[in-house]
Design a protein around this nucleic acid. Sequence first.
DNA 1: CGTCTATGTTGACGTCTGTCGAATCAATCT
DNA 2: AGATTGATTCGACAGACGTCAACATAGACG
Lengths: 118, 118
Amino acid sequence: MPSPAGPPVEAGTLCCPPLTERPLSAQEAETAARVFKALGDPVRLRLFSAVASHPGGEACVCDISDVGVSQPTVSHHLKRLKEAGLLASERRGTWVYYRLEPGVLAEIGRLLASGGAA
Amino acid sequence: MPSPAGPPVEAGTLCCPPLTERPLSAQEAETAARVFKALGDPVRLRLFSAVASHPGGEACVCDISDVGVSQPTVSHHLKRLKEAGLLASERRGTWVYYRLEPGVLAEIGRLLASGGAA
DNA sequence: CGTCTATGTTGACGTCTGTCGAATCAATCT
DNA sequence: AGATTGATTCGACAGACGTCAACATAGACG
């Protein structure tokens, strides 16, 4: 495998019907698993939650980097979340701001829908 | 809609407020990440989806073990899903049946709730 | 009892992942 | 320009993870 992470997941293309609808195909599972894997680390989950819950919908790295690991590690995890299509980043002057990729929460929620809604 | 005379907190359930409500603590993230990590593997995701979408709500290993890996590997992944509190298993005669741990989908969904549905 | 089928467990091996320190890039301030 | 602060990249290393073959266990059936 040349590319370790594969192409980034585009927003809105999370694929796949709800997990309860039918068994996922190999390719669907590959795509969806990338998102869950990104959330499957405590540090990343805290970073994601910090961004998601930040007033204004975005946070600069300096605001969320107090998660008990070094700054390079924070940067590494933010990159992973970005590659998974969960976060987007933008540099404004000195600081880099991260915010949720729009729709991701709903997408994942739909994947886990047990058929209740609608 | 929490029950007024709420029943005792069930053990093994998911913890944590929605990710968007406030930054997760280290311990909360540790707990929640375990679930996402369990779903963060393509094979496990397929197994989980196969069980979740199976008529009757349960499936024996023989019904879902065609995911392209060896039988020991399937067994290993089912164990991981069980340890993460996502699946439950029961032996009935020759076969072992797996089904969703009740409420898990809703729990994870609540974690990802963006505040819309209520 | 012995054997066959269905699952789970063990041990080993290569790969992926999380982590850090050091170096590097980016923008601001004196 | 040089110095300072914020953020990413690089290089390296320990530990976790996915995988399989071989072995072990559980129940069914003759």
